[in-house]
Nucleic acid binder design. Structure first.
Lengths: 187, 187
DNA sequence: ACCGTCATGTAATCGGTTACATGATTCT
DNA sequence: AGAATCATGTAACCGATTACATGACGGT
């Protein structure tokens, strides 16, 4: 009933030939790396900067993850790795056909589960914290976020960013507005 | 022959007396456990059920965590542990004064950071998935959530649940509405 | 009495976070 | 040139997810 056959012939802790391993289930972080590299090859450090500039607004990634995750994905054949020969020997990663296929499949799958709120401030309220004492700080945070999103929205739209990205900013604006509304009612 | 018997009890890496250890930084999971036990003592399994019934609506916890986290907190003196002597030897945990203090401090601290959206569906959109193909499933999910929240809200309010809990449900309703609005615009 | 399922718990694994380390660059 | 700072990378640790394991219980 479980997904992968864990049962067959162990005896040899396999490993070694990188090509075509039993594919683990990729994590969101994996797809972030694939998605970014699909736009353009780059080093982990560059990826870090791209995240900081765009995606980081609603989904941050630890920079160390970008090193480990690119290495894993290369090991699994979803990326290729090209080291520069002098100095830092930075590794530039590019997505492979296999990687693009994995990414495309993930993008096409519409059955992604629900998202939890996981808001620390709400958690405190749930456990009996005084709303009035939490609310001002939250209100401040969400107002700032709202302003930020609204400002980058203008910019991005004017310079013709892809619709997908604009949509995520719109979603951010919507949720920020809702948060402002909610916490406003508690101050 | 060699100075210290290789294996156990070497040199004394301190530890041992549970009382007053250097306190690690508690995680959200820690506070969930503390918060739940502050209402009423219970076994990890009971906690699991309480989470499933209430909190799980916006913050799920893996049941295995409830075993490890209660053990850790007891070790640290924030909980006490009482084993039943027959059968399963279930362990019932209660919060200590120290634990209540830690919880109260956390609840009182209003400087909790912002929350990320971290929505998989949005992530897909960001990376170029076709909104129209994602939207119907999302719409369905958020509509169901909205209905669910609205229904439990009535119930909880009628039986006089604490305000904090009602507020979290209200927040859930608000965000669900916003999500419905957002995804509706993309179908 | 046995079987299937639910209740309850532990162990192994893995990703993520934090801390550390070293190579470049700028400034004085 | 040396110090300070930034860029870039690796390693250690720890919590969380997953898988596994065993006890209890209802039904036939």
């Amino acid at each position: 009933m479980d997904k992968d056959a864990a049962l067959d012939s162990p005896a040899v802790p396999p490993e070694q030939h990188a090509t075509k391993m039993a594919p683990r289930t990729l994590s969101p972080t994996s797809y972030i790396v694939l998605g970014l590299l699909d736009r353009e090859p780059g080093t982990p450090y560059e990826l870090k900067n791209r995240v900081a500039r765009g995606l980081g607004n609603f989904w941050t990634v630890q920079h160390a993850q970008l090193y480990t995750e690119t290495a894993r994905l290369a090991e699994e054949g979803l990326l290729t790795e090209r080291s520069e020969s002098e100095g830092r020997r930075r590794k530039t990663y590019s997505i492979t056909k296999t990687g693009q296929k994995a990414l495309a499949e993930w993008l096409a799958d519409s059955t992604t589960g629900r998202t939890e709120l996981r808001d620390l401030a709400l958690l405190k309220i749930f456990f009996g914290a005084d709303p009035a004492s939490i609310a001002p700080a939250q209100l401040e945070i969400h107002r700032a976020r709202l302003a930020h999103f609204e400002s980058i929205y203008e910019t991005l739209r004017d310079i013709g960013f892809p619709r997908g990205i604009l949509l995520t900013v719109e979603a951010g604006i919507g949720h920020a507005r809702e948060s402002v509304r909610f916490w406003s009612s508690l101050v």
